[in-house]
Computed example of a mutant assay.
Amino acid sequence: MSLNFAVLGAGAGGQTMAGVLSSQGYSVKLYDIDQSKIQKLNALGKIVVTGKIECEGTPALMTTDLRAAMQDVDVVMVTTTTDAHRTLADQCAPYLHDGQIFMLNPGHVGGALEVAHVIRDIHQCKADVIIAEAGDLMYACRMPEVGTVFQSGLKNHVEVATLPASDVTRLLEILKPIFANLSPAKNILETGFEGGGAMLHPIPSLMNVNRTDSGEPYDYYMSGITPSVAKLVSACDAERLAVCRALGLEVPSLVKSLQKIYSLEQEDLYDLLQHNKAYVGLKSPSSLNHRFFIEDTLCGIVPLASIGQMMGVETPIMDACINIASVVCGRDFRAEGRTAERLGLAGKTLEEIYEMIS
């Protein structure tokens, strides 16, 4: 089956996806709002992928024109930061058509819910579009420079879910031959709410905000997360687990997840992080606009706290994190973020939520 792709977002993940797919002979249109980045890519005329995957690809179009990127495509792969999902869904809704796939890579907490609410409820789009989200970006990559991405590995197992969940079979019939590492999750609660990654970002970043203000670089995990900061992260994770239980999900703690991912044995979060060689040397945020402050608050902490409030679960650490981040960053993260209302969940019972996503 010959498929035409639009890749929305030309960061490391988007350039990797566009480069790999176009090197395999697929027609790919790469979109980004950053005009200078698109100009550089067009001047280069190709994307070079290095590392575990070695290839060169030339997308059919690299553009800042979203309408042009969306024209005559079968699969829309969204690889922007997750705080851009709502805006993209709003902008893409008029161009969607029957049989198309609109997939978030990844969705974070509530991504598919948010874009489905925008596309289907707000825009009243009647097109038979498969809305999907991956639990993680399928490429482990970084971008040394525009047009060159380093691929440290293709993740062997990436869960994907659709909204409604029954569409996942259709999705995999189309995408599994291309992305063999995709496997079906039960529903979007599994892909969106089970991961504890967001716990490791806003709180440590806020606890080190003076270093960010002064331009002081530090080893994010080894130096930025002290025993006291780790206690705050663990308390926040306990609230995440309580919200998940209220949603009928039995999910692993952050410690258990990290133990599994990195083959570690330490039971204390601080001790575990200090023994995780994969985290040594990772850069700290260089500004308050970093995704650790913005994306993980808007699309990680806010939805968990908002749904927790709706389900009667207290989240004082998350609430404090949202309030402090809003003051520090000069934004109202509660108003901007993925609240239960923005996810289309406001006022719904647990039974109604499961009926909605099944």
Rank of each mutant, 00 (worst) to 15 (best):
V328S: 15
I357E: 04
D213R: 15
R240G: 11
V73R: 10
I188H: 04
G110S: 08
I122C: 04
G14P: 01
G215T: 09
N323R: 15
L249D: 04
G111M: 03
Y218I: 14
G197E: 07
V280W: 15
N276F: 05
H117D: 11
P177D: 05
E159Y: 07
R120L: 03
I122T: 11
L304W: 03
I322H: 03
H275Y: 00
L163G: 08
V327W: 07
H97K: 11
A242V: 10
I119K: 13
C299E: 00
D319N: 14
E133D: 08
V209M: 10
T82K: 05
A127W: 02
G135H: 12
E336M: 15
E173C: 04
E145A: 06
I188C: 14
S286I: 08
P227Y: 03
A112D: 01
G192R: 03
C321H: 03
L304C: 03
C329W: 04
Y220H: 14
S214C: 01
P184I: 04
I38R: 12
S284Q: 07
A246H: 08
V129D: 06
A93P: 13
I131D: 08
K126P: 08
L137C: 13
E194Q: 14
T315D: 13
N156G: 10
L30I: 10
K260G: 10
A18F: 04
E295L: 02
V76T: 11
E267Y: 02
M77K: 02
C236V: 02
C141Y: 01
L247T: 02
S23A: 11
D213V: 10
T148D: 06
A132D: 09
Q71L: 07
L200M: 15
I33M: 10
V327M: 11
P144E: 00
A127N: 01
A68Y: 05
H290W: 03
A140I: 01
K46R: 14
I324C: 06
A346P: 01
E352R: 09
N156K: 11
T50W: 03
V280E: 15
P217A: 12
S287Q: 11
P59K: 08
G11W: 05
L272A: 05
A235Q: 13
V209F: 15
M103G: 14
K277S: 13
L30N: 10
L182G: 05
S2Q: 14
G13E: 03
A116Q: 13
G25W: 02
S287C: 07
E239K: 14
D34P: 07
L66N: 12
N105P: 00
H201K: 10
G195N: 15
T82H: 01
I225T: 13
T339S: 15
R67D: 01
S205N: 02
D271W: 04
L96W: 09
